[in-house]
Design a binder for these strands. Structure first.
Length: 413
RNA sequence: GCCUGGGUGGGGUAGCUGGUCAUCCUAUGGGACUGUGGAUCCUACGACUCGGGUUCAAAUCCCGACCCGGGCCCCA
């Protein structure tokens, strides 16, 4: 008795139909990224674990898939792709012309409890723009994210915030306390936040401003934020960003309560939410960050985001691209000719030739079962005329043509 | 990590107040119809997630593990 081996928890097999859907959506996203001038990159599936432990934040740590390799190195399967991209930049691209614009589509790994829209191996389609701290690049990145989602037929709610504004309030507090505060803000855990502020004896004035600030929403938020935080650089930049988003024609909600789970964000942050995903309603998240310095490079501002590809697949209604395919059917005395003809047709259109030793009728029946659009009949009668019979499976009509004509008519665009 | 619902052939199901050989549909292989598909008929294949426990007897009751779904947390 052998044990049946199952796939590990939180992983998936993708069958042909689902893969066709995924490729379809993937190609749409790629096309948009390409047209906006972003170049595809690929980084290793695993990295040294420090790359992710340095600055990704507590949240990520417990979720990392890690192991020691045979050379005793601590290795981690990547839980996300921003850190690897910045590592790559520091390692080999610091002296290239700015800004650098990259996109990637790859699998990531997190040890979490699987749920709807959440897996242990999942796919992110992401974008990073490196070398610009300007609101122009932030606006472009956000617009690109929305455009990509649109291309997949996904409509989401865009929320935009700015960590620099909130952080300016407590710039005198220790960094560890700051990130703890941001986490509480992110969770919208007002009670926990109050308790923590008590604990570190935060000044009353700051507390009041903080609570009002993170509650700010909508168009007047910037104006009110200025009254609360003063006329600081971050607000001016945020204001410019918002006006640029207007230029792009974006619809958005200002939300200064966005904090994000990864600790490396420093400026603009945004999230896009969608219906129909249960608890995992976020399909895209990103912002501006500074990571290069941490990885031994020069301080370099960057902006990026990642789209939860699997979540998009969950809600978008994209079907696989209709695939043409034909079946070559033959008789016992024409099987070899059928192989030759099948080979010619394969250069132009997906072609099936019987490999089951089936009889003529069953071959046609099979063609019907797999939804072939056409059948090419290779029989003695047809061959004697130097032709084959092309049968349209939908109409049932059939005509005598040459192999070249079949190729010409059915070839892929 | 926490709370909650659930696991019967490849897919979908009946049985689940313990008791013939576990039901039916579908899919798949083979066959009949013998150079023209979807139908029909015959046939083959194939399951109680795993491990303990209770019992004369467990798919059925109990416990645990594993896996799946939903929620919390976190995040994409």
């Amino acid at each position: 008795m052998v044990m049946e081996i199952q796939r590990p928890r939180g992983t998936r097999d993708f069958l042909p139909y689902e893969m066709a859907r995924r490729r379809n959506v993937e190609n749409r996203l790629r096309k948009v990224a390409k047209h906006w001038g972003y170049g595809e990159i690929k980084t290793p599936t695993f990295e040294h674990i420090e790359l992710f432990t340095i600055k990704s934040g507590e949240g990520i740590l417990g979720e990392i898939y890690n192991f020691k390799d045979k050379g005793e190195r601590e290795i981690a399967l990547r839980p996300e792709l921003t850190a690897p991209v910045v590592r790559m930049y520091v390692e080999e691209l610091q002296r290239s012309p700015k800004p650098l614009k990259f996109y990637y589509f790859d699998n990531c790994f997190r040890y979490e409890r699987p749920q709807k829209g959440r897996f242990r191996e999942f796919f992110q389609f992401g974008v990073e723009i490196i070398g610009s701290a300007r609101p122009e690049s932030e606006a472009e990145v956000i617009a690109l994210a929305v455009e990509m989602l649109n291309s997949a037929g996904v409509k989401g709610d865009l929320h935009v915030g700015h960590l620099g504004i909130v952080r300016a309030l407590f710039k005198d507090i220790q960094p560890e306390h700051q990130s703890k505060i941001m986490r509480l803000v992110d969770k919208k855990d007002d009670k926990g936040l109050e308790e923590f502020l008590d604990e570190i004896r935060a000044p009353d004035e700051m507390r009041g401003k903080l609570f009002r600030l993170i509650g700010l929403r909508g168009i007047n938020a910037v104006h009110e934020a200025r009254e609360l935080a003063g006329d600081i650089e971050a607000i001016a930049q945020f204001e410019t960003l918002l006006s640029l988003l207007d230029v792009y024609g974006m619809e958005y909600t200002v939300d200064l309560g966005i904090a994000r789970g990864l600790d490396y964000y420093t400026g603009m942050v945004f999230e896009i939410y969608c219906e129909g995903l249960g608890a995992q309603n976020q399909v895209c998240g990103g912002g501006s960050y500074r990571l290069a310095q941490l990885f031994g490079g020069e301080d370099t501002p960057s902006t990026g985001y990642a789209i939860g590809f699997d979540r998009i697949m969950e809600i978008c209604e994209v079907a696989p691209q209709a695939s043409k395919r034909i079946v070559v059917v033959s008789f016992d005395d024409t099987r070899k000719e059928a192989v030759v003809i099948g080979n010619k047709l394969r250069a132009h259109v997906p072609t099936y030739v019987d490999v089951m030793g089936r009889k003529f009728k069953d071959q046609i029946s099979y063609a019907n079962t797999i939804g072939a659009s056409h059948v090419v009949i290779v029989g003695k009668n047809e061959l004697d005329a130097g032709k084959v019979a092309l049968k349209d499976m939908r109409t049932g009509e059939q005509e005598l043509v040459t192999v070249e004509e079949v190729a010409e008519r059915l070839k892929l665009d």
